[in-house]
Design a protein around this nucleic acid. Structure first.
Ligand SMILES: Nc1ccn([C@H]2C[C@H](O)[C@@H](COP(=O)(O)OP(=O)(O)OP(=O)(O)O)O2)c(=O)n1
Ligand SMILES: [Mg+2]
Length: 750
DNA sequence: GCGGATCAC
DNA sequence: TATGGTGATCCGC
C-alpha cells in the first residue's frame, strides 16, 4: 500500500471478437501454427515470477486469463497499448542501427571511464535490511479470523483483489488479478473484503519494532521497510543475518505475522534479497565484491525494483543500460525523509456519459480531497483531473494556479472547468490530484539533488510559469518582509519590454522556435521583408503552443512575429572547429493585446535541435536574460538567480577554449566522442561546465574530481537515455535474462 | 508546466 | 457482469 495514506484500494468494493491476436507480442517466436495457442500472445503481469508461485501451471493460468479477458474493452485497450510499445521498440532498434563501429569504440571508452568512477565511489560497507511482511492483507485477515487458516483466500472482490494468501497462489491467484478470473482458477477461493484501518494498525505495530533497530528507518509501504543496521552490527558485533533474525522474531511476537528479510550493502540489493526466501525466511548477501558480482550477474533484470513489464521487454529487444545496477549501486547513503509531493483520490464506477453524475462524483472527490489536504495541513497550486474512458484510455488535465488552494470549493471550481472542456464522453473513472505544495520550494535543493542541470534549469524551463506564490515563499524563506500582493509585472503591464534570449546552436542545423502562451494567437512569423517563414501548429488546440521552423539559422538575421514581436539573431562567435557558436536572440514586443498570463516571460522560447531530432539538453534550453530585472519586484530575485548563474556558466564554457578537436576529441580531457553521439557529448559538455561552475562557487580545484551528487545525476541520465548507444541483443529465451546477458563482450555487430 | 506512461505496492 | 487506488517518476513537448 501507499506510504502516505491509510485509505486505499477499493479492490471492489462483449462485444467484439478479434482474430488478430498476433497483435500481441509479435516479437515472440512464432509457433508453426500461430493460431494454435492464441493465449500465448497475451502478455500479462500474472506470469511473472513471484514468491509462492513456483509450482503454478502457467500454461493454464495464461489460458484462463486470456479466455476470460478476450473481447472485453479492457483487453482491447491492452492490445492498443502493446502496439504502441512495439513501435517504441522499433524506433529504438532503428536508432541503434545508426551507430557506427567507431562510435561504439568511443562509447566503450566513455563507459569504461564511467564504470571506473562509479565503482570507485561505491560504498559496500553498510548493512541494510529490507523487511517485507508475507501476504500482508491476507495474513492480517487470517490473524483476525483463524478459520481462514489453510484455505485459499483473497482480499478484495470479484472485480479486483489486493492480494492472496499462499494457498491461493498455488492456483495462480495473486494481487491485481480480477476476482472473477481468480475464481475461475480456484473454485473454492474465499473472498474477504479489505479493511484498511486494520492494516494500518498492524503496520504501526511492525514499525514500532523497526524503530528499535533504526529510528530513521524508511517505510516503503505499509508492509515494507528499509533499516540501516550498520551501527548495530558494529556495536553489538553481530552479523546482519542475526539482526534480521531478531527483527523478524520481534515482529512475530508483536503481531503474530510472519515476514521475510533481505540483507545487503544497499537498499536495492536488500530488497531483491528479501524476496528470495519468502515467505518467513531471509537471505543474506555478503559485503564482498565477488559475492555481489556473482549474485548480480545471475539476477533476472525484472527482479530489480523499477524494471516492470514494459521496460523488461524493451531491454530484451534492444539495449545496454545497466551500469549502475550491474555495478550494485543503489541506495547505500543514509536515509532521508521524503516529503509528500502530491495527494489524490479517484473512483471507478459504471461507465456513463451522464454529466450530472460526473458533477456529483466530482463534488465527492473534491470534498474528500479537501478533507485529506486539511488533515495534513497542505495547500497546492497544481490541480490535475484524471479521467478513464469507457475504453480504458487514461487522460489527465491539469492547471497550475497562481494561488495555493485546498478548500472544496476552490478544488471543485477548477476541476469543473477542466472537466467541462472534455465532455461529452463516456467515463468509468474520475480522479483529482493536488501537487506543487506550499513550502516545497527548496526541497529540490537538497544536496543530493543540487546538480548542475537541476540548478540551472530551476525557474528557467520554458514550460514553467513563474508562480507568483513561489515568490512569496522565497521571501518567507529568507525572512524578508512579506508582500501581500504579488508583483504585477509578470502578469501585466508588459508593454515595451524586451526579452533577450540566449541560445546555442549547431551551424547548419535546424533551429526551432517555439512559443507558448495563453494570449498569443499563433502568430505568423515573418522575415523582415514580410515573407512568412514557416508556421506549424502543434496538436494542442485550443491552447496556443506551437513550433516555428527555420531551416537554416543565419546569424544576424531578423525575423518578425506577426506585427508584435521581433527577434534578432546576433552571432557572437564561432569556436575553433566551427561546429558550435554562441549567439544571441533578442525579442521585443511593442505592444501586446492583454496577454493573460506571464506572457512576457513565457511567450517566446527557442531551442536548437539537431537534424537527428535529439533534443539538446541543458545549454540549448533557454536562459532568459531578463530585462524585466530592471523592475524592483521580488520576482526578479528568482529569475535573476538562475539566469545569472547560467549566463555566467555559458560564458565560462565559451571562454574556456572547450572544443571538440577535429570534431572528435575533447579539448579538455582528451576523451573521444564521435559527433553522432549527441547526448553523450551533451552530457560530457555539461560535465565540464559543472566543474567550472563548482570552481567558481566552491573554490574546488579546476578540473578536479566530480563530487558525489553530480556523479549520481550523470549516472541516472545514463540509465535512462542514450537509446543511440543501445545494441541489439541476441534474443534467445528471453524469459529470464540475467544481467550478465546485457554486458556483451563483443560490441560490434557483424 | 502538461500529458502520457511506467512502476510499486 | 466484472480489470482498483495512491503516489512517484520520467520523457517529450
Ligand atoms: N497491486 C497491489 C499489490 C499489493 N497491494 C497491497 C496488498 C498486499 O498485501 C500489500 C503488500 O504488498 P506485497 O507486494 O508485499 O504483497 P504481499 O505482502 O501481499 O505478499 P508477499 O510480500 O508475501 O509476496 O500491498 C495492493 O493493494 N495492490
Ligand atoms: Mg509483503
Amino acid at each position: 500500500m501507499q506510504p502516505h495514506h491509510s485509505r486505499a484500494a477499493s479492490c471492489d468494493g462483449d462485444a467484439i471478437r478479434h482474430d488478430d491476436e498476433a497483435a500481441f507480442n509479435c516479437h515472440q517466436k512464432q509457433s508453426p501454427h500461430k493460431d494454435d495457442k492464441p493465449w500465448h500472445s497475451y502478455d500479462t503481469v500474472f506470469l511473472n515470477a513471484k514468491a509462492g508461485m513456483d509450482g503454478v501451471d502457467k500454461e493454464k493460468v495464461q489460458k484462463v486469463v486470456y479466455e476470460m479477458s478476450k473481447g472485453s474493452r479492457y483487453f482491447e485497450n491492452e492490445k492498443r497499448k502493446e502496439a504502441v510499445v512495439e513501435q517504441r521498440i522499433d524506433r529504438l532498434r532503428s536508432q541503434a542501427c545508426l551507430i557506427t563501429a567507431a562510435g561504439l569504440a568511443s562509447l566503450e571508452k566513455v563507459v569504461d571511464k564511467k564504470i571506473g568512477e562509479l565503482e570507485a565511489n561505491r560504498d559496500l560497507s553498510r548493512v541494510w535490511i529490507h523487511v517485507d511482511l508475507d501476504a500482508f492483507y491476507a495474513a492480517v485477515e487470517t490473524q483476525e479470523n483463524p478459520s481462514l487458516k489453510g484455505k485459499p483466500m483473497a482480499v478484495g472482490g470479484l472485480s479486483m483483489i489486493c492480494t492472496a494468501n499462499y494457498e491461493a497462489r498455488k492456483f495462480g491467484v495473486r494481487a491485481a488479478m480480477p476476482g472473477f478470473i481468480a475464481r475461475k482458477l480456484c473454485q473454492d477461493l474465499i473472498f474477504v473484503r479489505p479493511d484498511f484501518e486494520k492494516y494500518s494498525k498492524y503496520s504501526e505495530l511492525t514499525r514500532q519494532v523497526f524503530r528499535e533497530y533504526d529510528e530513521r528507518f524508511i517505510a516503503r509501504s505499509m508492509d515494507e521497510a528499509y533499516l540501516d543496521v550498520t551501527d548495530i552490527c558494529r556495536e553489538r558485533t553481530i552479523s546482519g543475518a542475526q539482526v534480521a533474525e531478531e527483527i523478524r522474531h520481534h515482529v512475530y511476537e508483536k503481531t503474530k505475522l510472519t515476514c521475510s528479510a533481505g540483507v545487503g550493502p544497499n537498499r536495492l540489493l536488500a530488497k531483491v534479497c528479501s524476496d528470495i526466501n519468502k515467505p518467513n525466511g531471509q537471505y543474506v548477501l555478503p559485503n564482498e565484491r565477488s559475492a555481489i558480482m556473482n549474485f548480480i550477474s545471475a539476477l533476472p533484470i525484472r527482479k530489480v525494483s523499477g524494471i516492470g513489464k514494459v521496460t523488461e521487454r524493451m531491454l530484451k529487444d534492444v539495449l545496454d543500460f545497466f551500469f549502475s545496477v550491474g555495478l550494485a549501486i543503489g541506495g547505500s547513503e543514509p536515509p532521508q525523509d521524503e516529503p509528500r509531493k502530491s495527494l489524490s483520490n479517484e473512483r471507478t464506477f459504471m461507465a456513463t456519459t451522464d454529466e450530472s453524475f460526473f458533477s456529483k462524483k466530482l463534488e465527492e472527490l473534491a470534498e474528500a480531497l479537501a478533507v485529506d489536504m486539511a488533515k495534513e495541513g497542505l495547500q497546492g497550486r497544481t490541480l490535475t483531473l484524471k479521467l478513464k474512458t469507457a475504453s480504458f484510455e487514461v487522460r489527465t488535465r491539469a492547471v497550475s494556479l497562481h494561488q495555493y488552494i485546498f478548500s472544496k470549493s476552490d478544488i471543485l471550481l477548477h476541476a469543473s472547468k477542466l472537466l467541462k472542456a472534455e465532455v461529452p464522453l463516456s467515463l468509468r473513472l474520475i480522479g483529482l490530484r493536488l501537487a506543487n505544495f506550499k513550502g516545497e520550494m527548496f526541497a529540490c535543493l537538497s544536496p543530493s539533488q543540487r546538480t548542475l542541470a537541476s540548478y540551472l534549469n530551476q525557474n528557467t524551463s520554458p514550460y514553467k510559469t513563474p508562480g507568483v506564490t513561489d515568490i512569496c515563499e522565497y521571501e518567507t524563506m529568507n525572512s524578508m518582509p512579506h508582500r501581500e500582493s504579488s508583483p504585477k509585472s509578470i502578469d501585466q503591464d508588459n508593454e515595451n519590454e524586451d526579452l533577450r534570449l540566449s541560445f546555442k546552436a549547431h551551424v547548419g542545423r535546424r533551429l526551432n522556435l517555439s512559443y507558448k502562451s495563453d494570449g498569443l494567437q499563433n502568430p505568423n512569423y515573418k522575415h523582415e521583408d514580410g515573407q512568412v517563414v514557416t508556421s506549424k501548429r502543434l496538436d494542442r488546440d485550443p491552447l496556443t503552443h506551437g513550433t516555428l521552423q527555420q531551416s537554416l539559422l543565419k546569424p544576424g538575421e531578423t525575423y518578425l512575429a506577426g506585427e508584435e514581436a521581433s527577434i534578432v539573431l546576433q552571432r557572437r562567435g564561432i569556436d575553433s572547429c566551427g561546429s558550435h557558436f554562441e549567439s544571441k536572440l533578442c525579442a521585443s514586443w511593442d505592444s501586446m493585446e492583454k496577454p493573460s498570463t506571464s506572457l512576457n516571460v513565457d511567450a517566446l522560447t527557442c531551442k536548437a535541435e539537431s537534424e537527428m531530432g535529439f533534443r539538446s539538453s541543458l545549454l540549448d534550453s533557454i536562459g532568459i536574460e531578463d530585462q524585466v530585472a530592471a523592475e524592483s519586484s521580488t520576482s526578479i530575485l528568482q529569475i535573476d538567480r538562475s539566469t545569472h548563474v547560467k549566463s555566467e556558466a555559458t560564458n565560462l564554457l565559451q571562454t574556456s577554449s572547450f572544443t571538440w578537436i577535429e570534431d572528435f576529441r575533447c579539448s579538455v580531457c582528451g576523451i573521444e566522442v564521435p559527433a553522432e553521439l549527441i547526448s553523450i557529448r551533451q552530457e560530457h559538455e555539461d560535465y565540464h561546465l559543472a566543474q567550472l561552475l563548482q570552481e567558481e562557487s566552491g573554490g574546488m580545484g579546476l578540473w578536479s574530481n566530480h563530487n558525489d551528487s553530480f556523479q549520481k545525476q550523470i549516472g541516472k541520465r545514463c540509465l535512462r537515455e542514450e537509446s543511440g548507444t543501445r545494441r541489439k541483443l541476441s534474443k534467445k529465451d528471453a524469459n529470464c535474462l540475467p544481467i550478465d546477458a546485457y554486458f556483451v563482450k563483443n560490441r560490434f555487430s557483424p
